[in-house]
């Protein structure tokens, strides 16, 4: 099993401290939020799908450990500009591979939180009134 030097590789800490698209998306067409019941880590993902099913933009917000927050940043960076179909085909295994270091089953839940939220968000259109402002 990986020790903590590997778990917290520099590029992961970089994502944690300088995340990709952390904030809200005023023009979001789809959004979802969920928690890891084990520890209370929370992630919200807001995204804008165009008529062709292309992910034009996507942002995340939330609170939690390095793994849950850095993995969200890595996932969004990976999927920006991809199609919703490609996002749906992006498997849990792909997510763990993208993160990199091997994780124990409990820490995998931290890593897969944003992946789970994204999969739900694609199927969760927001109502007209939802989503205002955009900030990091």
């Amino acid at each position: 099993m990986a020790n903590e030097e590997d778990l917290y590789q520099e590029h992961i800490l970089d994502h944690y401290e300088d995340p990709f698209h952390r904030g809200h998306l005023a023009a979001a067409t789809h959004a979802h939020e969920d928690k890891n019941p084990l520890c209370g880590d929370v992630i919200r993902i807001e995204l804008k799908l165009d008529d062709q099913g292309l992910i034009e933009d996507l942002w995340f917000s939330g609170d939690g450990c390095v793994i849950s927050q850095a993995s969200a940043s890595m996932l969004l960076e990976e999927l920006q500009g991809k199609t919703a179909r490609e996002a749906m085909q992006f498997s849990a295994e792909d997510m763990l591979k993208l993160y990199g270091p091997r994780l124990t089953p409990n820490r995998q839940k931290c890593c897969l939180l944003s992946w789970r939220v994204l999969q739900s968000a694609i199927h969760s259109p927001v109502s007209e009134s939802a989503g205002t402002g955009s900030s990091a």
Partner: peptide, 13 residues
């Protein structure tokens, strides 16, 4: 620093 980081590093190191 989240509690998970404490538990992880305290264990691993």
């Amino acid at each position: 620093v989240h509690a998970h980081e404490f538990a992880q590093v305290l264990n691993d190191r």
